[in-house]
Design a protein around this nucleic acid. Structure first.
Lengths: 338, 338
DNA sequence: ATATGCTATGTAAGCGCTTACATCAGATAA
DNA sequence: TTATCTGATGTAAGCGCTTACATAGCATAT
C-alpha cells in the first residue's frame, strides 16, 4: 500500500494513548483474559479516538487464524450461482468471517498452486468438482477444515458435505411423468460427467424407469452439459435422427431451455407434441413459454448450511458427515399437466 | 488453524533444503533482485520437493501488500450481480489478485468498522452506494486505492469511476418511444433514491420529454425501486387510480417484470393496450411474454474495466477519472414494435 | 597494482499482532 | 502472621515473511 506512514496507527499507539500495554489492548479487543471494566473502557476510548483498526495480516500471522473462509467454485455463472453465493455471503458475515472467493475456471484438473488454502483461509467450501481430488486429499490429511457443497466426500476421507436430494428429485420427476402423465418414452439430457449433481440425477432417472419396467434406452440419452447451447445442439440432432419420445427430462433448467428452443425451431409444440421438464427451478423457469415443470433445489439453504458446518469444523466442533436437503416437484405447463 | 505443526513448512525450510538464505528464496519467489539461474533452480526444486506455499499473512505483514482487492456491494442479488461478479472475478484472477467480497447488506448507512479496508486489501471496488460517503472520504484521504463502479465520485474528491451511459440510454429509449412508436404519455417507474443509476435514468427520461415538448407529469412517475414486487404494487395502484398512459418505462428490467405482471393481472394487453420497456437487458428479458424491449448495459465489461483501473491505481499508474460505457437499445415486442 | 563498479548472496531488523510467562497486588486460607 | 492463590497487567518472544544494508567475488577502468 502506498499509504502515508504517519497515518498508520497500530496497537502500540492505542496502548500508549490508553496508558496500558499492548497485551491488554489485545485482550480487550479479543475478549481474552481478564481485564478491569475501567481499563477496558479506556482502551475502547483510545480505539475510538484514534480510529484504530487491527491489521488482519499481523493478526493472522500471530494467531495462525485468518478469520476468513474460502469459497471455491468452478465458474461463476448460471442462475445457479446467485442464490448460492448469497447464502454463503450472508452466513459468513453473520458468523463474523470474511469471504474469499476463487473460481478455478471450470478446470478441475487445474494445477497447483491453488489460490485458496491453508495459509490464507481458516477453512474452505468446495463446490462440486472445483478442486482436484488430490488437493482435497492433501488438505484433509493435514486436518484443514473443509466442507463440500453439491458433492460428496471421496471415499475413505470423511469430509462433511451438504447437497440436495438429486436422485430423489429426479426419480420423483420421472415417477410423475410416468404415473400422472402416462409417458413411457422419456428422453434424458444428462449433465457434465464430472459433476456429481449430474450423476445422481441420471441415476434417479434410471431408477424410476426400472421401477416402472421401462427398459433403459441409450438412444434416449444425450449430453445437455448443464448448458443451453449444448442441449440445443443435442436435441436438434435427436430430431434430425427421428427422436421418438413423449417427453424430455433435462438434467437442469438451462439445458431445458436449450431443448425447448430446439423443439420450437423444428415446429414441435410443447407440451402437445413433446413435454419438457428440467431441474433446479431457476427464476427463468416460471417465465418460459410454456412455464417449465422442474424440480426445485434449495440452493441458498444448502449454501447457508455449508457455511455453518464449516464454522463448526473450524471451531473443532462435530458436524454430521452428510446433509441432504429435500427437493420439490414444481409442476407447470411444460409437462402437459393442464 | 488446527494444523499439525510439523507439517508447516516455511521459507526457512526451503532455504535450508536449497542451501541458500531466506532472502534468496524470497528473491526467487518474487523475482526481485538478481539470482543466478542455477541458484534459482535449486530453490525451485526445494519448493517443489517440500510443497512449499508462502504464507499470505506474513507476506502481507512484511511487504505491506495484501495482493487482494476488495469488492463492496450493497446486496448480492438481482440478475445484475452475476455478470458483474464474473467480470470482477476473472479480471482479478488474471491480474494475479485475490478477491475479497463483502456485501454491506443494502444499508449504505451501516456503521463502522467496515469489513474491507486499508488493512486487508490493497484497494477497493465500491459498487453504487455500498459505502457511506464519510468512509469513502476517509479512505480517499489516506490515499487508499479506490475505484467506483456504477456511481460517480463525490465532488471534490477525484476517485476514478466506471459506469454506463444511463442517461443516454434512457434518453434514447424515450426518444424511440416518442419518435418511432408515437407515444406521448409515457409513465416512469423510478429506481431507488440512493442509487446513481436510478438518478441518471430518470434524468434521461425527463430530458427526452423536454426535447419532445412533452410536459413532465408527476402523476406518471412512481416508485419501482429496481424491485419486481414494488413495481407491481405501484402499477396496480396506478391502474386503480385510472392510469392514462401509452407506455411504461421501468428503470430496470426487474421492475418491468413487476409492471407486466400487474398489467396482465388487470387484463391489459402488452403492448396493444400499453407498452412496457425496461433497462439492463437481464437474461430473463428475452424470455418474457412479450419479450421485453430494454436498454442493454455492459455490466461485465464495466466490472472488468473497474478491476483493471484499480490494479493500475494500486501500482501507482494514472487512470482516467471517469469511464462511461455505451448502452444499447434492444428492441423486442413489448414496446409494440411489431 | 589499486580503485571502482557490478553481480550474487547473506544478515538481520522489522511488519503489527498474540500469547506464554513473569510480576505484583490484594484476598483467602492456614 | 505467613503461605497460597487469584485476578489484573506487563514483558518479550515469536509468527513467516520482505528488504535495507553489508559483504564478497570478480571484471573493468586507472
Amino acid at each position: 500500500m502506498l499509504l502515508d506512514d504517519s497515518s498508520r496507527i497500530t496497537i502500540v499507539e492505542v496502548a500508549q494513548y490508553a496508558g496500558v500495554s499492548t497485551a491488554t489492548v489485545s485482550r480487550v479487543i479479543n475478549k481474552t483474559g481478564p481485564v478491569l471494566p475501567e481499563t477496558a473502557a479506556k482502551v475502547y476510548a483510545a480505539i475510538e479516538a484514534l480510529n484504530y483498526k487491527p491489521n488482519a495480516a499481523a493478526r493472522g500471522l500471530a494467531s495462525r487464524r485468518t478469520n476468513t473462509i474460502g469459497l471455491l467454485v468452478d465458474e461463476i455463472s448460471g442462475e445457479f450461482f446467485q442464490p448460492m453465493l448469497r447464502g454463503i455471503e450472508v452466513t459468513a458475515r453473520a458468523s463474523g468471517m470474511d469471504l474469499l472467493i476463487s473460481s478455478t475456471g471450470g478446470m478441475s484438473q487445474s494445477s497447483p498452486p491453488y489460490p485458496l488454502g491453508e495459509n490464507n483461509t481458516d477453512g474452505l467450501i468446495v463446490f462440486a468438482d472445483s478442486l482436484p481430488q488430490e488437493e482435497l486429499v492433501r488438505l484433509h490429511k493435514i486436518g484443514f477444515p473443509l466442507v463440500l457443497l453439491h458433492r460428496s466426500s471421496p471415499s475413505g476421507l470423511n469430509i462433511p458435505c451438504v447437497t440436495v436430494e438429486n436422485k430423489e428429485g429426479a426419480r420423483r420427476m420421472v415417477d410423475y411423468l410416468v404415473e400422472e402423465r402416462g409417458y413411457r418414452k422419456i428422453a434424458f439430457l444428462e449433465g457434465p460427467d464430472s459433476h456429481e449433481d449430474a450423476y445422481w440425477r441420471k441415476l434417479g432417472y434410471e431408477e424410476s424407469l426400472a421401477v416402472h419396467d421401462i427398459p433403459f434406452n441409450p438412444k434416449l440419452v444425450s449430453l445437455g452439459e448443464f448448458d443451453e447451447t449444448q442441449a440445443r445442439v443435442s436435441v436438434s440432432q435427436w430430431i434430425k435422427n427421428g427422436l421418438n419420445a413423449e417427453a424430455i427430462f433435462a438434467a437442469d433448467d438451462d439445458s431445458a431451455i436449450g431443448a425447448m428452443a430446439a423443439l420450437k425451431e423444428s415446429g414441435l409444440r410443447i407440451p402437445e407434441d413433446i413435454a419438457v421438464v428440467g431441474f433446479d427451478d431457476i427464476r427463468l423457469a416460471a417465465y418460459l413459454d410454456p412455464p417449465l415443470t422442474t424440480v426445485r433445489a434449495p440452493i441458498e439453504q444448502a449454501a447457508r448450511i455449508a457455511v455453518e458446518q464449516l464454522v463448526k469444523v473450524i471451531r473443532g466442533e462435530e458436524v454430521e458427515a452428510m446433509t441432504l436437503l429435500p427437493t420439490e416437484l414444481v409442476i407447470r405447463r411444460s409437462c402437459g399437466c393442464c
